[in-house]
Each structure stands twice: as C-alpha cells, then as structure tokens.
Simulated scan of single mutants.
Amino acid sequence: MAGPARGGYAENFARLVATGADVDGEARLADALLPRGARVLDAGAGMGRVAAALRERGHEVVAVEPDPALVEQARRTYPGLEVLEADVLALSPDDVGTFDLVVCVGNVLVFLAEGTERQVLARLRSLLRPGGRILAGFHLRGAPAAARHYPPEELVADAEAAGLRVDLRVGSYELHPANDEYAVWLLSAAD
C-alpha cells in the first residue's frame, strides 16, 4: 500500500497538536456517522491523531500504519493507543475483524503506490460490517509535494470496480460543497 514518502507530515502535525490546534475535523465527522461504541479502523493512521480522537469519543478503534517511524510517533504522542504496524493489504477480517467505519483520511489515498488503489479499496470493503462505510479524504490540488494527483472520476471508477458506491462527496470534513481543492468521500458496499 505504501507509496511516496510523506515528507514533513509527522513534524507538521506534532507542532499542531503541541500548540493545541484543532486537528479533529475528520474525527468529528466520523463520530457523527457512528452509533456510540462503534468499531472503527483507521487505515493509514499516521501519528494516530484521528484514532486517538475517536477512542476518546468512546469508539473501539484499530489503528493501522505501515511506516515504523509514524507508528513510534503515534505511540509517543498518544500513550495507550494501540497501533498495528502493517500494510492495509495484509489485513483480513480473520485477523482484525470487521468495522462499522473505515477511516482513510489525511491524503492516505494519494500516497498509495500507484496502481494499488482498487486493491486497497477492495480490501477496505472486505473489512466492513453489513451497513459499514468508508470515510476518505484527500487534496485534489495543493497536496503535499510527494502526493500524486488522483482525479475524482478515477476514485469513482476505482471504488465501483472494488464493489463500492459513492454515497456522498463534499469539499471538507465540515460538509462544505464539493470543490476542486479537497474531496471527502463516503463510500459503502454496492450490494
């Protein structure tokens, strides 16, 4: 699943967290989509900020991150947060169970190794409980330098090929109208 390096990501969010900046937008939206005590997978958890925020809101969270440096930073920044060092493609329902929501935010999809998008989306779909959904978001423009461009029509085609449907597309985690800068997607199983 891993693609290009995420230069500066960890340092940037560590600074934001240390200064008390609001870094919970994704977690607030995810929480609003869920019943109390839901089971959530944070795929590409990075330093763990979304997983930690959802855990604080009472959800059972499994955080998965392939980058060992980010796993270590997550454990330092959020003591007690369990973060699995693993690639999403290595996960199976037999190993981690199934989830009410898979969170794949913060540009995770534009950092995938090119050509793995459909595999990753299909794997995430396989980890959903009946009625489960995937919340994803990424920059369409202005992404970090190492990110690749992932046009909305490609995401839709990849999601459909992976057995998913688009239930919602908006322009922010605060549900602003869809735009050409950032995209937030809510996906669910097509069947």
Rank of each mutant, 00 (worst) to 15 (best):
2 A>F: 10
3 G>P: 04
5 A>W: 00
5 A>P: 00
5 A>E: 01
5 A>Q: 00
9 Y>R: 00
10 A>Y: 03
12 N>R: 08
12 N>A: 08
20 G>L: 13
22 D>P: 12
25 G>N: 15
26 E>Y: 03
31 D>Y: 09
32 A>R: 15
34 L>F: 13
34 L>C: 15
34 L>E: 08
36 R>D: 15
37 G>F: 10
37 G>A: 14
37 G>W: 11
38 A>E: 08
41 L>A: 05
43 A>F: 01
45 A>H: 11
45 A>C: 15
46 G>D: 05
47 M>T: 13
48 G>F: 05
48 G>P: 04
50 V>C: 01
51 A>P: 00
52 A>Q: 07
52 A>G: 03
52 A>L: 05
53 A>H: 02
55 R>F: 02
58 G>R: 11
58 G>L: 10
60 E>G: 12
61 V>R: 10
66 P>N: 15
66 P>V: 14
67 D>K: 13
67 D>G: 12
70 L>R: 08
71 V>H: 06
71 V>G: 07
72 E>A: 15
72 E>F: 04
72 E>S: 13
73 Q>L: 14
75 R>Q: 13
76 R>P: 07
77 T>F: 11
78 Y>D: 05
79 P>Y: 06
80 G>K: 10
81 L>Q: 10
83 V>Y: 03
84 L>Y: 07
84 L>R: 13
84 L>C: 07
85 E>H: 12
86 A>D: 11
87 D>L: 06
89 L>E: 08
90 A>L: 09
90 A>G: 14
91 L>N: 03
93 P>I: 09
95 D>C: 10
99 F>T: 02
100 D>W: 03
101 L>C: 02
104 C>N: 05
105 V>L: 00
106 G>N: 04
110 V>K: 04
110 V>N: 11
111 F>Q: 01
113 A>I: 00
113 A>D: 02
113 A>M: 00
114 E>Q: 09
115 G>R: 06
115 G>K: 05
116 T>D: 00
118 R>E: 14
118 R>Q: 09
118 R>L: 02
119 Q>M: 08
120 V>M: 07
123 R>C: 10
127 L>I: 05
129 R>P: 00
131 G>A: 06
131 G>L: 06
132 G>I: 02
134 I>K: 08
137 G>D: 05
138 F>H: 11
141 R>G: 09
142 G>C: 11
142 G>Y: 10
142 G>T: 12
142 G>E: 12
143 A>D: 09
144 P>E: 02
145 A>T: 10
148 R>C: 05
148 R>S: 10
149 H>T: 12
150 Y>N: 03
151 P>A: 14
152 P>A: 07
153 E>A: 14
155 L>K: 09
156 V>D: 05
157 A>Q: 04
157 A>N: 02
164 L>G: 06
166 V>Q: 07
166 V>F: 04
167 D>T: 13
167 D>H: 12
168 L>Q: 15
170 V>H: 05
170 V>T: 15
171 G>I: 04
171 G>Q: 02
173 Y>E: 04
175 L>V: 13
177 P>W: 07
180 D>T: 06
182 Y>I: 06
182 Y>E: 06
182 Y>P: 02
183 A>V: 13
189 A>D: 13
190 A>S: 07
190 A>C: 02
